[in-house]
Write a protein that binds this DNA or RNA. Structure first.
Lengths: 184, 184
DNA sequence: TGATACTATATCATACCGATATATTGCAAG
DNA sequence: CTTGCAATATATCGGTATGATATAGTATCA
């Protein structure tokens, strides 16, 4: 069971980090399959510290809030290796775009086309973000696999939407047509 | 912004339903892009009733809890049409499988292969579930589009994982090999 | 000089999930 | 022939997570 707490622990197996740095790692390398906000990361780190799975060294910085650098403990490593054997929960997806498409019959052609074009653009941005991340740092096999997965999925999504948008746009086109029919 | 409350309202534009029936609709037709539990559906329906966007008619059933059938009001329809114009939040995904793959270097080949095989099987089950749903009822264009999207994505996922599992399994194979090397 | 962005930690209301409670019907396997 | 499981039906609660906001100094660019 991979909650934010467990993933923070996992990230700390790759090296010490502050809460802020962990957030950046979530955004840069985990964003297309997992999200975590400060509101869950900071409490998670506090709990992990209480449980003795990580330690916290406060680096006093002049003119900035103390930087709290967290390190995983041997007990923490054992706990993390343990969760790696736990059964995986099924994937979960939330797409407001697909929810909107379920009600395509209530939309005008314009609304529909704008939503679809915007979504394709979003998918392209995701692909670019993954490519950037790949180029910046050397990747472990795991990271390479996950990045490739993300790209493959977004590319498939673009292909599907481009090839099948007519399914929803067609009927909207017809329901907008009657105006023209009067003149023909 | 499509939260559970808004989607309940949307489902009620397609016909009256009880909380229990709404849950089933979420599971059967929305499950691959949106999840909602009783813990969010019942409170959502209560709020919608308070706001006058739906009405509730309690059907007394002998030997069962009263069935509360909800209907959307004209004000509810207007409110729903209104949210359809709101900007879409980006898609969100949570995959424990990909999280696990990020730590593939900590796993044995056996753990890795089992996880991958299990995930492929899960993807296949999802595709079958979508196909079943398609055959059972006549589909609106929106439903057809969304179902096709789900299938396309899961098929792409299977293809990617089958074609690229060696990226993570290869290194695990090598780190397990030394035993054999002694005899060769 | 002012605006914006970045580093850095923290909290709070709101939302949501998963488990559990309660109660009845009906079917199937042992 | 009864025991257990699945389905129908509503509801609550603890725990987890999000998104917005607060605070506060540095840096950069116009």
């Amino acid at each position: 069971m991979f909650d934010v707490k467990t993933l923070c622990l996992g990230i700390l197996t790759m090296g010490d980090a502050s809460g802020y740095e962990i957030k950046k790692i979530f955004e840069e390398r985990f964003s297309h399959f997992f999200a975590a906000s400060f509101g869950s990361i900071y409490p998670a780190l506090n709990k992990l510290t209480q449980e003795g799975l990580v330690t916290c060294a406060a680096q006093a910085q002049s003119k900035r809030p103390d930087k709290k650098v967290y390190s995983i403990t041997p007990a923490g490593k054992i706990a993390f290796m343990d969760t790696l054997n736990q059964p995986l929960a099924p994937d979960r997806h939330r797409s407001e775009f697909l929810a909107l498409m379920m009600f395509s019959h209530l939309l005008t052609l314009r609304q529909l086309s704008d939503a679809i074009d915007g979504k394709i653009a979003e998918y392209r941005r995701e692909i670019d973000a993954i490519s950037d991340c790949e180029n910046e740092r050397p990747c472990s096999p795991g990271e390479e696999f996950v990045a490739g997965f993300g790209k493959a999925i977004y590319e498939a999504a673009i292909r599907y939407v481009e090839d099948h948008r007519h399914i929803v746009e067609g009927p909207a086109l017809l329901s907008a047509a009657p105006e023209k029919d009067l003149t023909s």
